[in-house]
Amino acid sequence: MRLQKRERQQKLAALLRENPVLTDGDLAEHFSVSVQTVRLDRLELGIPELRERLKDMAARTLDDVKALPIDEVIGDILDIELDKRAVSVFDVSEDHVFQRNGIARGHHLFAQANSLAVAVIDDDLALTARSELEFRKPVHAGDRVVAKAEVEPGSEKPRRSIVKVVSTVGEDTVFTGTFEMYRTHERGKEGQR
């Protein structure tokens, strides 16, 4: 059953607040309407296109990252709360895949996850001490990889933090990683900058 325009627009706005990386095509499929209808709905609601939403989200996070320059993060950071969580998006292009089979090279997925794990640490220096990785599904050119990092609340080791990263394409998990991060200061201790 099709939704009335007002109800569809309310749900569209709520869905984009929850997941701002959805494309107009994703939204059109979700609501069983044309891409043009989604574009008109966004215009009426004053919601910018995906590229502008991503730029806006990335611009708001620039000052937060401490452990590495923002231009060294692989992908675009959309949201970050230091020592808690972070989200980045990485658009896979033809340059990131093997020519023979069109599958993304694993080091790009690792680089996105690892740089996000470094960026989420609230310290001037964060280094990957150890990692456990699992590549679950192939990623192809044209896919948008959304990586979500969460810092675990405590660590048994001083100056260490555990960051779990899950990367998805659409609804599918394509990569998971657990990163043990070395940090200059103990988390939450005085003197930490």
Rank of each mutant, 00 (worst) to 15 (best):
G142M: 01
T178E: 08
E171L: 04
R60F: 05
V145N: 01
E72H: 13
V92W: 04
R85H: 10
R42V: 05
H96D: 10
R51I: 10
E44C: 14
E156N: 13
A58L: 11
S131V: 05
E186M: 12
T61C: 13
Q9K: 15
V120H: 06
D56W: 12
R17S: 08
K164N: 13
V97M: 10
G46V: 00
A111V: 04
E44T: 12
G106N: 07
L68W: 02
G191Q: 08
V145K: 00
G177E: 01
T61V: 12
D83F: 09
E180N: 03
A113V: 11
L12T: 04
G106T: 02
F90T: 02
E7F: 10
V65S: 01
L133G: 00
Q112L: 13
I162F: 04
T176A: 05
S93P: 11
K148S: 15
G142I: 00
K157P: 01
F31R: 04
A58E: 09
K11Q: 13
E180C: 03
R144Q: 10
A126N: 01
K11P: 08
D79P: 00
L27E: 02
H107L: 14
T128V: 13
L68G: 05
R144K: 11
S131K: 06
L78P: 00
I74C: 09
V166H: 02
T184D: 05
M1E: 06
L116D: 05
H96L: 08
L127D: 12
A147G: 09
D26L: 04
A141G: 01
R85M: 08
L40D: 09
D63P: 11
I47L: 12
R85S: 08
G106L: 03
K137Q: 09
D91K: 15
Q10R: 14
A119R: 01
A119H: 06
K5P: 03
V73M: 13
G177V: 02
G25N: 13
S32M: 07
G154S: 10
D83S: 13
L78Y: 03
L15D: 09
L22T: 03
S115T: 13
R100T: 04
H185V: 12
E152G: 07
L109T: 03
D95F: 14
E52V: 15
A104V: 11
I70S: 14
G75S: 01
